[in-house]
């Protein structure tokens, strides 16, 4: 798994503290609190309607929070100077269809008070693989090309922070790999900080070093992704066996070691070991009962499993 986070997180770049937002009867955000540190690729995860877009709109000063504190780069999010330091890519591309890629980029650059040279614009378009269509109107682009142009637009004023809402939406697998590489490069080589909102668990798991999971307007978990996944799989192992393990052996394993066993597969066995029980004890026990052990691996909890567990907990 390729993760970000090689830059030492030292400073809070985005801070939300007890942010609330209501639309009529709907409490869209209910005390949202999380922090994005410098150098993070921070995954903001949640189902459709969970509150991701509302949070992003508040960060971009498109909506005002009813209460709570929102700051970006140490300043309130509603300052014009703060917005000049943020690049964004919203769910909708927001490109001018009748303008070419170059004209779109120049236009947005001017709004930020920049005037990039022809070479800089060309380099930017090359970085998102649009050099050959630079002078075509955006209205003639495919969905994937529009997303790439929107990403280039987010970078046109060389912002310190990028807020990306569903950046991979509508992009083919090749394009996704390329955008993933661009995002990682932006953080690791160019020192940017990225807040990436998505409901694609796989995308978040591949890219992000820290996450927050929002559900029904509330943050359910937030923190370092590796730690969160590790915490969910502590003491869990998967044993590869030469054949299916008999139920009687599993029962004895449970009685003797207090081990919880998952449903046995044809040649695998998922076990959760209580504190003090070593892998070697289990392997030795299985061998003594004639079970051929071919391998032992610490079980890896996927983000999907973590997500499902959290939702299940909420429903309970």
């Amino acid at each position: 798994m390729d993760k970000g986070g090689t830059v030492e997180p030292t400073t809070a770049v985005i801070e939300l503290e007890d942010v609330k937002k209501r639309f009529g009867a709907l409490q869209a955000l209910n005390g949202v609190t999380f922090t994005v540190e410098r150098g993070d690729i921070f995954g903001y995860l949640g189902a459709n309607g969970a509150g991701k877009t509302t949070t992003i709109r508040i960060l971009l000063d498109l909506l005002r929070a009813d209460s709570g504190r929102v700051s970006v780069l140490g300043d309130p999010a509603n300052r014009v100077e703060t917005r000049r330091r943020i690049g964004f890519m919203l769910d909708a591309d927001g490109l001018y269809d009748q303008l070419t890629a170059v004209e779109n980029l120049r236009f947005y650059a001017k709004l930020y008070g920049c005037s990039p040279s022809a070479g800089e614009i060309a380099a930017l378009l090359a970085s998102v693989r649009l050099s050959d269509r630079a002078n075509d109107r955006a209205g003639t682009y495919s969905k994937g090309m529009r997303r790439r142009l929107a990403l280039a637009r987010a970078l046109v004023h060389d912002p310190e922070v990028l807020i990306l809402d569903e950046p991979m939406s509508g992009i083919d697998p090749t394009g996704q790999i390329e955008i993933r590489a661009i995002i990682q490069d932006l953080v690791h080589e160019r020192g940017k900080t990225i807040l990436l909102s998505s409901h694609d668990l796989d995308e978040i798991e591949r890219l992000c070093n820290r996450i927050a999971l929002i559900d029904q307007g509330e943050i359910r978990i937030t923190g370092d992704l590796k730690r969160l996944l590790g915490a969910g799989s502590e003491g869990q192992i998967t044993i590869a066996t030469s054949a299916a393990v008999a139920p009687a052996i599993l029962a004895e394993l449970r009685d003797r070691f207090g081990v919880e066993a998952g449903a046995p597969g044809s040649a695998t066995l998922d076990l959760k070991l209580p504190a003090g029980v070593r892998n070697a004890d289990i392997v030795s026990f299985l061998a003594s009962h004639g079970v051929g052990v071919e391998g032992v691996a610490a079980k890896h909890t996927s983000l999907e499993e973590l997500y499902a567990a959290i939702l299940k907990e909420r429903e309970a």
């Binding site: 971009l60 000063d61 498109l62 919203l90 490109l95």
Partner: peptide, 14 residues
Amino acid sequence: ASGSIESLLATPVA
């Protein structure tokens, strides 16, 4: 509909 108005407002445009 295209989101260009929302995008413009996220820049320093008032």
